[in-house]
């Protein structure tokens, strides 16, 4: 589904190049569930963002769903992204001014779905995540776990093939975290969504089918479960 070859990313600090991602090559097949681990500052988020096309590498080759990403223009990349990828954040990043319903609906608006279609899709998603009762609440009125649930629902609403999650359980207690992981596993198994998550927890990492360990911008080890 995607392939990174000799991807590097550096920041120029003074005269020296500070490599955050250092010559990483990575193949991901459709249907995989990958957990990325590593100490803080090792480049996990940066790698995830590059995969998600939210950040550009300094060098290397990037292929996604048959497209040569490093050669695409901004617009095409954005279209590709809209079509295939959903993002989940550690800090949820819901829009405070919108209700649960409206937050979930937003990506559909940007993808030009019709109002009736949107209604059906959002209703379906609310149902699936069992948050129908909360649909008119604002993010500030929800607990962290509930907010992350909405965040995931929003990431999934447009039916992405790839779900990227940067420490999705980082702000949650272990019970809430476990629920989210169960949900990911189910998505991966039943719906065939490819998932790449960054996590600090060994236990959560083991929900995945492969664990990649990063250190100083390199893949230190990779383990198939």
């Amino acid at each position: 589904m995607l392939s990174l070859q000799h991807i590097s990313k550096f920041y120029q600090v003074g005269g020296t190049r500070n490599f955050v991602i250092n010559d990483i090559s990575l193949e991901v097949e459709a249907g995989e569930f990958i957990s990325i681990m590593g100490p803080s500052g090792s480049g996990k988020s940066t790698l995830l963002n590059i995969i998600g096309m939210l950040d550009e590498p300094s060098s290397g080759y990037h292929y996604f769903a048959g497209e040569t990403v490093h050669q695409l223009k901004d617009k095409q990349r954005s279209a590709l992204y809209k079509k295939y990828i959903g993002f989940v954040f550690q800090a949820y990043h819901l829009i405070d001014e919108l209700t649960v319903y409206e937050n979930i609906e937003t990506p559909l608006i940007y993808q030009d779905f019709k109002s009736t279609e949107r209604k059906a899709m959002v209703a379906d998603m609310l149902d699936r995540f069992q948050i129908v009762g909360k649909k008119d609440l604002f993010p500030a009125q929800l607990s962290g776990g509930q907010q992350q649930l909405v965040g995931i629902a929003r990431a999934l609403i447009a039916g992405p093939k790839l779900l990227l999650a940067d420490e999705p359980t980082g702000n949650l207690n272990s019970k809430q975290g476990e629920e989210i992981m169960q949900l990911f596993k189910k998505l991966n198994k039943e719906d065939g969504v490819t998932i790449i998550q960054v996590t600090h927890s060994e236990k959560n990492a083991e929900y995945g089918s492969r664990i990649i360990n990063l250190l100083d911008g390199r893949i230190e080890s990779s383990k198939q479960l």
Partner: peptide, 16 residues
């Protein structure tokens, strides 16, 4: 700014 960031991640074009 955060709202802008989120909207962009959710697929909003700049012109929107």
């Amino acid at each position: 700014a955060r709202e802008v960031g989120v909207r962009k991640v959710l697929g909003s074009a700049r012109k929107h």
